[in-house]
Design a protein around this nucleic acid. Structure first.
Length: 192
DNA sequence: AGAGTGATGGGCT
DNA sequence: GCCCATCACTCTT
């Protein structure tokens, strides 16, 4: 189990993001997740790119209502919605809003900070380790077994705030990899 | 620009 | 039930 004492700079104050943080709408929550720490097991990365998906959004899995696959999106905020796609990749989302809303924030990229060696081993390469939604799931060992995991329940998988504020001026662009509702500016990333 | 990969769900019969 | 287009992707050419 990772603990705060393992953090390279013992002076940083860490706090665990609580459920209330995720209770707003996905387009409001998403940019606030930038620069937070995404923790899964012993792997930690700083979130650098996110997208929002909502119920009234034709690009969202929840658009056509609740199904077995997307049921976690309709549950309590702060849980992880993981799905398998394109026959090979997993993607990780944070459920937002209130139960029944059907919305989530897709974590698209992180900067590896802790557990980098394991990420490289899992990815089978030393570059571009976690700069894509499928890549970061492979690097962090996220698969369908983590679907529904409560990120507000402990340190095994969670979002931590180490005092790095979200960027004052994030890069805001159209979402990528979708074929509908491509006009919504619901992708946020940090400058390099 | 395209191949690889497999679960999902909508539309049928 | 079955068929099959679709898919919030990655890597290589």
């Amino acid at each position: 189990m990772w603990c705060a004492n393992d953090w390279a700079d013992a002076d940083v104050a860490l706090h665990h993001l609580e459920r209330e943080f995720f209770a707003a709408g996905a387009p409001d929550v998403a940019p606030l997740v930038l620069n937070k720490l995404f923790v899964v097991g012993e792997c930690i990365g700083r979130v650098t790119e996110v997208e929002a998906y909502t119920r009234d959004d034709p690009a969202s899995h929840s658009f056509r209502g609740r199904t077995n696959r997307n049921s976690v999106m309709f549950g309590e905020a702060g849980h992880l919605y993981v799905y398998f796609t394109y026959g090979l990749h997993h993607c990780a989302n944070i459920v937002t809003g209130h139960a029944g809303d059907g919305q989530a924030v897709l974590i698209r990229a992180v900067e590896p900070l802790v557990g980098t060696e394991q990420m490289i081993r899992r990815r089978g390469r030393g570059t571009n380790i976690a700069d894509g939604p499928g890549k970061l799931c492979q690097a962090f060992g996220i698969d369908i077994d983590l679907n529904g995991f409560d990120l507000c329940s402990g340190l095994r998988a969670c979002i931590l705030d180490d005092g790095h504020a979200p960027p004052e001026v994030p890069i805001v662009t159209k979402r990528v990899g979708i074929r509908v509702a491509t006009d919504r500016l619901w992708r946020w990333s940090v400058r390099h």
